[in-house]
């Protein structure tokens, strides 16, 4: 584990997302209504839509291109669609958001 400081929780809009560029592609970091933070691949497996631009509701995000809905916890597509996005571990320590750099370097985020 190699936790690194990414940003403050409040840098991410409430019920919104920001992206983190990594060597293996963009990771979307979401902040839910309850101030939980989740990190997933930014790319929708359907047509490559930027998930960080989607509407965040509950612990889910809706892709802005064709309304696929993904669970931020499991990365699984909800409802009738079938698909999976990579999810990454996050930590919040004293209002700072941390991601595990070693996990981000393994390449699972490339999708």
């Amino acid at each position: 584990m190699n936790w690194i400081d990414i940003c403050s929780v409040t840098d991410i809009p409430l019920r919104g997302a920001r992206i983190v560029k990594t060597a293996v592609g963009c990771v979307a970091v979401f902040r839910t209504s309850d101030n939980e933070v989740f990190a997933t691949s930014n790319r929708c497996p359907h047509k490559g839509g930027p998930l960080s631009e989607g509407i965040v509701h509950g612990k889910a995000v809706t892709c802005p291109l064709h309304n696929w809905v993904f669970s931020l916890e499991t990365g699984k597509a909800q409802g009738p669609d079938e698909g999976q996005i990579a999810t990454f571990a996050t930590q919040i320590i004293e209002d700072r958001v941390l991601l595990d750099a070693s996990e981000l370097a393994t390449g699972v985020a490339a999708e």
């Binding site: 690194i4 990414i6 940003c7 840098d11 991410i12 809009p13 920001r18 992206i19 983190v20 560029k21 990594t22 060597a23 963009c26 970091v29 991601l99 750099a101 981000l104 370097a105």
Partner: peptide, 14 residues
């Protein structure tokens, strides 16, 4: 600023 990535780990890795 919200139009920019909140962090760029790609550079650090490089």
């Amino acid at each position: 600023e919200i139009y920019q990535p909140v962090a760029n780990l790609a550079l650090e890795a490089a």
